[in-house]
Amino acid sequence: MLMAGVVEMRGVSKRFGTVTALDGLDLTVEQGEVHGFLGPNGAGKSTTLRLLLGLLRADGGSARLLGMDPWRDVAAVHRRLAYVPGDVALWPNLTGGEVIDLLGRLQGGQDPARRARYLALFDLDPTKKARTYSKGNRQKVALVAALATDAELFLLDEPTSGLDPLMEDAFRGCVRELRDQGRTVLLSSHILSEAEALSDRVSIIRAGRVVETGRLEDLRHLTRTSVTADVGTVPTGLDLLPGVHDVVVVNHRVSAQVESSGLAPFMKALTAAGLSSLTSQPPTLEDLFLRHYGAGRPGQERANA
């Protein structure tokens, strides 16, 4: 038998009083992949990660992490993983450096060279008291602490939500590096483009249930860029180009939904037609749900109809 997934969740459910946070969730993360875990706010991403960390206890279903039970085998599992919470809270009186070293020791040691490298990469001053850090800087502390360990599995809960674009770029470099080293990453996000840029596979969670999972190429229909362009003369046959959908022409303005593979020929055609201005927008998760399911989130069906 082949090695089972690093994360295996089957029919996991979790309720908080009357709120159902997870409703029969299935999730598999394979060894060595970067797995994007996509869903809008409140979909249940953080709850899933907390269950995997043994911080919460599932009401039903089964979950395995690195072949072990996330609730019972806490110490053994945690020695092999690193976690960055969605909302990083630090001790106001400790410096960033003190927190990084404390977390590293509790994790069973971190590599000083890597610690120094990531501090420099994220441009983080470790001598500042945590009280004075911004949200982004608190997140960097948790990121450096996690990245400097020798974990096999990284659970990252919306790790870029407080980072500026430059730091986001640095973070993406780090994730690619982890993948090249054969480590496994589960990366939650509510931004489709982020998952697209990093993930080998994605799972899309909605209202506590994984509704779509697979390689990005296979989910290509989900990742269309919306393009609006002003051209001199509107060329004909745009809607016949491969990967181009929903073409609308108003006077000299063309708008369309284009798959990534269709972008090059589409742009070529627009350039030839005397392109004068261009805006493009990656689809948001909300667009994706609207398009893919033809309806909004549960309870909004009528509003979006």
Binding site: T127, K129, R131
Partner: peptide
């Protein structure tokens, strides 16, 4: 706020609880 140590001496949760 004054800067503090760049390297931490806390060796575990017990140290932290005391601190």
């Amino acid at each position: 706020e004054r800067p503090g140590p760049a390297v931490g001496a806390l060796s575990g949760v017990r140290d932290l609880a005391v601190r």
